[in-house]
Amino acid sequence: MKKHPVSLTVNTDTYDLLIEPRKTLLATLRDTIGLTGTKEGCSTGDCGACTVIVDGKAVTSCMMLGVSANGKEITTVEGLASRDQLHPIQQAFIDKGGYQCGFCTPGFIVASKAYLDENPNATEAEIRHALGNNICRCTGYTKIIEAVMSAAEAMRNA
């Protein structure tokens, strides 16, 4: 089967790849590029662990083909912190104890970033609803929501 040339910008870097059409964006990020921060929890779009931002929108990367991401800009969890500073959402997850096993955390942080960029004044109810595409099995969500709420405040005040 013919492989396709694909050019992706992931975080700040551009990758020119040759991939099989059957490889998802998730597989491309993890196995071809080697950015394993994005996780595979269900591979049916239901758990959100694979969330990345494509052209400004959070998507479940397990449901998108790598070839469909050609020419697009992708942000993964690895692209949120600068060299010397965490993203406020990352810092809030630490300060509020918003993770336990941590497997869902990249997906939650990336989904939260995309959502707060869209709705910086989100209420708790809106955040709880908007993060419904992400499953966490450890925390019961209380501390995740606290973290996102406090990050939103920090970002508003920044």
């Binding site: 950015l35 921060g37 969890v77 965490l86 810092q91 997850f93 630490i94 942080i109």
Partner: peptide, 18 residues
């Protein structure tokens, strides 16, 4: 804060599949 805080929020933690 937890001792593994940085690796857990930056995607650096290495799970089995990684």
């Amino acid at each position: 804060p937890r001792v593994d805080a940085l690796e857990k929020v930056t995607g650096a933690a290495q799970y089995g599949g990684d």
